[in-house]
């Protein structure tokens, strides 16, 4: 099992600009499905039962965690990063959709594997309890999850998972209703960008663009990064399914990822104060429209393929 495979089977690629919601005084945009949902779908297609729990009482949450640690079950926890002590200060915003794995206890400190960190880290009981009960949008409420039954995984289940994963992702990106999600969401944001300079003033508009870049590249592997990840998934899927058509579509996602990165460079020009004209905002908006076309065509190709059941 590899990361791209899990991402693809869980239909991880997505785009949404959540209306009305602001995060750190900027627009809320996401480039992927909520990690919890990816995890859930992937486990489901692998036939792994996952138990998840939320708590209203921090003490109960801690007792439950201790119990699981004693049973030697590694558990995933959703946490907020603001109070996460081992994070560098620059990254500690009120961002609540971070996940880490607790896999043991040593000298009264939990041993933690964090996807951001290369090495194992640790947190004291108070510190962990604090981040598990962080507040604000998407508050984790002590959310904890762990696999219950693990069956041996055959190539056949993986193949089936790949097919459902692709189909679901096609549906999410092309046929989701509304104009602010899926590939149409990219157009929605692009239309917003055109208006930002006049509506918000140059300063706030450039902060908003900075926020998009941070959402795109920084938090998680980021938007461009997720496109590469999906490309890697399709490449692996092509090998599993013995289907070369998938690897050609994989190229399209690589291209989309590169285009996202190019647009980020352009946006950087704005928030660094090099580009200030309305024309530059128009160009950025056009770049996003191009990305939308590439992604839309790629998903349409996937949609037209008959991959079997």
């Amino acid at each position: 099992m590899t990361e791209p495979l899990a991402f693809g089977m869980g239909s991880g690629l997505f785009y949404i600009q959540i209306p009305f919601l602001t995060v750190n005084n900027g627009p809320a945009i996401s480039f992927r499905t909520m990690p919890g949902a990816i995890f859930k779908r992937t486990c489901k297609s692998l036939g792994v039962a996952v138990t998840r729990k939320k708590f209203s009482n921090p003490a109960a949450a801690e007792a439950f965690l201790d119990q699981k640690v004693k049973e030697n079950v590694p558990v995933g926890c959703q946490v907020g990063v603001f109070h996460l002590s081992y994070f560098p200060k620059e990254y500690r915003f009120h961002f609540n959709a971070h996940n880490l794995i607790v896999f043991g206890e040593e000298d009264g400190r939990y041993l933690i594997s964090d996807p951001v960190m290369e090495d194992v880290t640790s947190l004291s009981k108070e510190e962990l309890s604090r981040v598990r009960f962080a507040q604000g949008p998407l508050a984790p409420k002590g959310h904890i999850y762990f696999p219950e039954k693990v069956r041996p995984i055959t190539d056949d289940t993986i193949r089936k998972g790949i097919v459902t994963g692709i189909k679901r992702n096609v549906r999410d990106m092309l046929r989701i209703p509304g104009n602010f999600a899926g590939v149409d969401g990219i157009r929605h944001t692009s239309n917003h960008i055109r208006k930002w300079r006049d509506k918000l003033g140059l300063k706030k508009a450039s902060l908003y663009l900075g926020q998009i870049v941070r959402m795109q590249e920084e938090i998680g592997t980021g938007g461009g990064g997720f496109r590469f990840l999906y490309g890697a998934f399709l490449e692996e899927a092509a090998a599993y399914m013995q289907d070369d058509r998938l690897s050609t579509v994989s190229e399209d996602f690589t291209k989309a990822g590169d285009m996202w990165r190019a647009s980020a460079i352009k946006m950087a020009g704005v928030y660094k104060g090099r580009l200030t004209e309305q024309k530059d905002f128009e160009e950025i908006a056009d770049m996003l429209l191009d990305v939308r076309m590439v992604e839309k065509e790629a998903f349409q190709k996937l949609s037209r393929m008959s991959l079997g059941k």
Binding site: P4, N24, N25, E90, Y91, S206, L207, G210, Q211, V213, R214, E217, E218, F228, G231, A232, E235, S250, R261, A264, I265, M267, A268, Y271, K272
Partner: peptide
């Protein structure tokens, strides 16, 4: 032309986005 993982130390575009957020 195959995908593989590699480690990056960072990217100036991202660094500037973060810096401008902190400036604000």
């Amino acid at each position: 032309g195959k995908y593989e993982t590699a480690l990056s130390r960072g990217w100036d575009v991202k660094k500037d986005a973060l810096d401008s957020a902190w400036e604000n």
